[in-house]
Nucleic acid binder design. Structure first.
Lengths: 217, 217
DNA sequence: GTCTATATATAGATAGAC
DNA sequence: GTCTATCTATATATAGAC
């Protein structure tokens, strides 16, 4: 296969740097150095740092919208809903720079504010719909009053478990095992609402608890 | 009473600015302008921006440790535990700049990383102890396996509901009514574990759901 | 304790040769 | 498409008068 184009390597390196150290702490000089190109060359592809950030947001949004559009072929199969959740979770991880320090992000690229708000509204609608299917299928028992708070907490924990764990880890880099921790935190939000049947399944070897670290993250 | 000293006004204004726009986006020039003093004067009190940030962290840590040291006089009284939770919640709100963008914070003041890790460890131990009292008293029924995930999610939601809501609000400033929303999100984490007795009490007029906005925040 | 004026460093961005 | 050299703006920080 062809060697990755410079533009793509810039995006890849920037994503990693932004995720780890935050959008505002990473300089264009550092990005160029990491990619192994000159700073002038970087500006050939992205005339403003804002454009770089926006291009990464584009990718994030596209991935979120694919996930949102997804549907459960068989809502009675718990593995499918867990897979669906894992999709959200993996995307939130891959583009965690968006959530972390969103204030600085929007200050750098103000146009993203509206786009992010629209995106999250659509994403919430999608997850509301899918959760509805799962409840309909009898896997979960959630009183109507609890639906919205539950959805919001799922989003919050999926997006922000990283900061919490990084703090406890004294800033050590997070690895695959930590991803498992995060995903379990999300699943923990659902545990009290499991039907009896599902409760048994969750503790069976078939439950794909630990396999998040094997997914593309 | 005496007019507030300049140093205190600097701290107050900085806290507000950092909370709203993030540590790395706020400049010393902007702080001085907000306080109504000259930039040179600002540097008379804090020779480095890092010292300013550290002083605010000191206040945060002190407040957290006071809250952590607190105990429930009567663990069978649900209002007391809710008050305890509200204490955590209010502090997390007042110093939300610490959680939001913690990467940039630690890059600016590396010494805070270790302190924050130690502080959160103590805080977790404290909330673990108090939650234990409440469970002992029969107000909540939490399986031992769920205790740690629950505590972690309480911390995550308490610290990060703001970013989530700000996104949905299209960046509008958050107000007291939004604080209620956040606190309800935290309480929602506990709702599935309520004893029957407590469940009734929660829906009674005595339940101090809405009064978080009257607290000092 | 507060101000004015100045210094230093560096991040973001451009021009033009190759 | 990539590099070298350079420019501009500005954030942090200091010196010294008042």
């Amino acid at each position: 296969m062809a060697a990755p184009k410079t533009r793509d390597r810039v995006l890849e390196s920037s994503l990693e740097l932004f995720n780890v150290r935050g959008v505002s702490s990473v300089t264009t000089a550092e990005i160029a150095r990491t990619v192994g190109i000159n700073e002038g060359n970087l500006y050939y592809y992205f005339q403003k740092k804002e454009q770089l950030v926006t291009a990464l947001f584009d990718a994030f949004e596209a991935e979120i919208r694919v996930t949102a559009a997804g549907d459960l072929a068989d809502p009675t199969n718990p593995a499918e809903y867990i897979g669906y959740l894992r999709g959200w979770f993996a995307t939130a991880w891959r583009y965690r720079f968006v959530q972390r320090d969103s204030a600085a992000l929007f200050e750098m690229a103000p146009a993203l504010r509206e786009r992010a708000a629209a995106m999250i509204a659509d994403a919430e609608a999608a997850s509301r719909r899918v959760l509805g299917q799962v409840i309909e299928a009898g896997l979960l028992t959630v009183e109507p009053d609890m639906l919205e708070p539950l959805l919001a907490n799922v989003w919050i924990v999926s997006s922000h478990w990283i900061d919490h764990l990084a703090l406890r880890r004294h800033g050590r880099e997070l690895g695959p095992a930590d991803l498992d921790w995060g995903f379990r935190q999300v699943l923990a939000l659902f545990l009290p609402y499991l039907s009896e049947e599902l409760r048994g399944w969750m503790s069976s070897p078939a439950a794909p608890f630990a396999s998040i670290s094997e997914a593309r993250v």
